[in-house]
Design a binder for these strands. Sequence first.
DNA 1: TTGTAAGCGTTATCAT
DNA 2: ATGATAACGCTTACAA
Lengths: 349, 349
Amino acid sequence: MKALTQTDRRRRRAPTIYEVAKRAGVSIATVSRVQQQPSRVAAPTRDRVERAIKELAYRPSRLGRSLAHGSHDATGIVFPDLSGPYYSAVILGYEEASAAQGQSVLILATHRRPRTVEQVLHLADRVDGLVIMGRTVGDDVVEQLDRRGVPMVLLARPPAAAIDSIRSENRRSAEALVRHLIEHGHDRIGFVGDPADSADVAERFEGFLAAHRGAGIQPAFDPTPSALRETDGRAAAITLLGRADRPTAVVGANDEVALGVLDAARGAGIRVPTELAVTGWDDIPMTRHVSPALTTVRQPMFDLGRRAAALLHERITVDPAEPRHETLPTRLVVRSSCGCTAPAEEKEE
Amino acid sequence: MKALTQTDRRRRRAPTIYEVAKRAGVSIATVSRVQQQPSRVAAPTRDRVERAIKELAYRPSRLGRSLAHGSHDATGIVFPDLSGPYYSAVILGYEEASAAQGQSVLILATHRRPRTVEQVLHLADRVDGLVIMGRTVGDDVVEQLDRRGVPMVLLARPPAAAIDSIRSENRRSAEALVRHLIEHGHDRIGFVGDPADSADVAERFEGFLAAHRGAGIQPAFDPTPSALRETDGRAAAITLLGRADRPTAVVGANDEVALGVLDAARGAGIRVPTELAVTGWDDIPMTRHVSPALTTVRQPMFDLGRRAAALLHERITVDPAEPRHETLPTRLVVRSSCGCTAPAEEKEE
DNA sequence: TTGTAAGCGTTATCAT
DNA sequence: ATGATAACGCTTACAA
């Protein structure tokens, strides 16, 4: 009996439209019509077909359908390595909006492997369009895909050529952030992060410089290069804080880096914020929970994903003449790691 | 000129195998062979074909290929609403392993919408197999898919019928965790979380009860129902901690809930861990950063996803006779929120 | 070694 | 209102 059950469970050939047609005593065209435009089929016929469909538990093959129709009804999103809250939030936003549009979502993480390019091209073959995050692939690949006619949206990547893009504002908020630190009296401010690493970081660093210029002071340090994980930030900060002329404030390229800085400071016995101010970027959930609570810049990660889905969908369906380049607003969130005692904007919204 | 560029970028009909064949002066069978088994084509012919492929930038249509071959080379993972670090980690592990197998990954978040079932069935139509997390869909749907012959792996869901499953150990670690609290002298321990909500929570609560039994004491409270987000945990804890006979220790169903409890305690002016011990579950990155650092149970979220991918892949390719049910080990991570002063296992590994 | 031709499961255009 | 039938783009026997 057990073997029977096994057999029973075994991969079954799914019923095709032909079997439904035969059972209902109609042609396959009619079966197809019943699914596409039921109104164009006489009620009695329709009933027979629907019964047959039910009885056979028929589901049209996506592959057949897609091949005939010429579209995948799916899109893909390419993101960097296995990262934290930032990427999850973007992807969730993307998934939500895509699902609402009836599009399936394929994800691809580029694990910094050499096969990345191949994988991205491969992915492009099975979707109607692609969202490319940051520096996951080179411009050459983007161009190649564009030439091939693959609808794309670049996310958190400098607007290239004539391709739609979406990102959030960095420069102005970074300037506001650093200005805030300067107003706290800091004039020896470090920057932990690598401007060469991503456009986002580069722009944040530009804002950092702009704030200095605005205050008429020279940056006391070059950026301390660091990847965007906490452990990278910690390592970089250990170097930076070990200097005799160490900074009195450190701007982290993102929240995770800032947490690493916090940790490094703790390890070095440096008090935050009294001896060292620290700021982050993103406003991930954790920022509220650390002590001192992290002053940061909130960026609308979920909306970034959602909006990317919308842009891509338009690109696929109507293909607007002009490329769109959107920048979502960000906002300084002052907590206590910058030295503020009565946090101005601690409330959730 | 601009219009020209536009036109140039417009969706282009991709070259088909026929055009390559014509250009190379061979039949489509030969073109196909060059891609499948190059060795079976004479070198000179092969060269001509390869040149034609290059010149036309030909890429075989996935749809055509899949239809002919009868497989999608893709799998899907279904997870609940937009959640935190737990789901991201599982999904990333799943993606990584799947990519290594050459499988594309489709994701679907069930936003607790009524359309969920339809969406899952839809997803099943476009993949070779499915991972179903937790209570995203009812048993009826799982059965329906199983009857249809869709290879599946159930993740963090009670092993149903003859379907492969993977999860991590809950009961024993929960018992160890609560025993630890009891050894701290607690005998009025609350549980924040809803055992009816998921199998994971139910099993953790069983462990909670088992520890009490083992110590010969009665649980002082029924579980305080709570969903798994921080805000839910906070709300539930506010109730629980507001009682005159409030607990001296609270076991959170997961880390986020525990953070909510921490927050509620802070709001009520209750000191942790001196007046109240708190524990979580999962060991998300944040647990290290809060103060006091959270005592919790580490579960291998990334591996959960990775292993699910492996099981599914086997199921799809070799279809083992017997269903496999795996349970990954978990581990108590003692930090300070339980009242321990010299954290025993604080080191990262 | 290469070509012919039959699928694969739809959709959609014509006829009827 | 319904049915034939030609795509859609590939893989893979089977022939030659």
